[in-house]
Amino acid sequence: MKEIIIATKNAGKAEEFRSFFAKYDIEAISLLDLTEPVEDIEETGTTFEENAALKAEQIAEKLSTPVLADDSGLMVDALNGRPGIFSARYAGEPKDDQANLEKVLRELERSANRQARFVCVLAVAIPGEETFFKRGVCEGSLIMEPRGGNGFGYDPIFVPDGFTTTMAQLSSDEKNNISHRSDAIMKLEEWIKQI
């Protein structure tokens, strides 16, 4: 079985990648699975692409192996695209999904515009080659009361277009079929088949 390193220490995200790559008979190994710890890469970029590349390239160089990194987040129209690249730390350090979600809901209290989208940018860094990117998007809207226990982050308040339930109310298979991460990974399919 082929392997790919996924540059994440987020258990929920790691599980989504494992599920996606399993159908291609590729084992997705997260940074949580490595015996030798990898230090966190500071996300100093100003775009999803820059942050994904920072993680993928630095870890690929350290491990001398192909690395896939993602940077993803929630972009809310009424908040001028915030939290965007700051989604994981929107309420400050340390990372706190519940605090982030509550901050977005507070900021939307007086807004009728609930349009939002999840964005995922994948960067694939292969030592000696140019890093390449794929971007995935899942359009939807936000509700004011969290619903559902499946998923993580902003999933409990995000209703994908065409659905009446939140991401957190969908089964893992349903979510994996429509998510921003799935959209980005499907765009990687040709490369995945080659490895």
Rank of each mutant, 00 (worst) to 15 (best):
D77A: 11
S179A: 07
I126V: 15
I157N: 09
A7T: 11
K193I: 05
E109F: 02
R106F: 03
E27G: 07
R18G: 10
L34E: 12
D183W: 01
N10Q: 12
A112M: 09
E129G: 01
E107K: 00
M144G: 06
A116Y: 00
T165M: 09
T47L: 04
R114V: 05
Q98V: 15
G151T: 06
K55M: 01
T35N: 13
V137A: 11
V159F: 14
Y154Q: 04
A28S: 14
P94Y: 06
E39D: 14
M186G: 11
W191L: 06
S30A: 09
E49M: 07
G148H: 10
F86E: 11
E39M: 11
L142I: 15
W191V: 03
T46S: 11
V124I: 14
A168G: 13
S182H: 11
V137M: 12
S141A: 15
E145C: 03
E189N: 13
S172F: 07
T44N: 13
F20L: 14
V104G: 11
A22W: 00
F86G: 04
T165E: 15
E93P: 09
E16P: 07
V38N: 12
E189Y: 04
E49C: 05
R181M: 08
A22E: 10
K95G: 02
R147L: 12
P160H: 04
E190S: 15
R114E: 03
V121C: 12
Y154N: 07
D40M: 09
S172G: 04
A91C: 13
A28G: 13
A60Q: 02
A52K: 01
E57C: 02
L142Y: 03
L105D: 00
T44E: 10
E3A: 09
D155Q: 11
K103F: 10
H180W: 04
P146W: 08
F132G: 03
T65A: 12
L79R: 08
E39F: 08
L170D: 15
Q169G: 00
T8C: 13
G92L: 08
F158E: 09
L170H: 11
K103E: 05
K187P: 10
L101E: 06
T65P: 02
N150S: 14
V124R: 02
K13T: 11
E15H: 10
W191K: 12
V38S: 13
I178R: 05
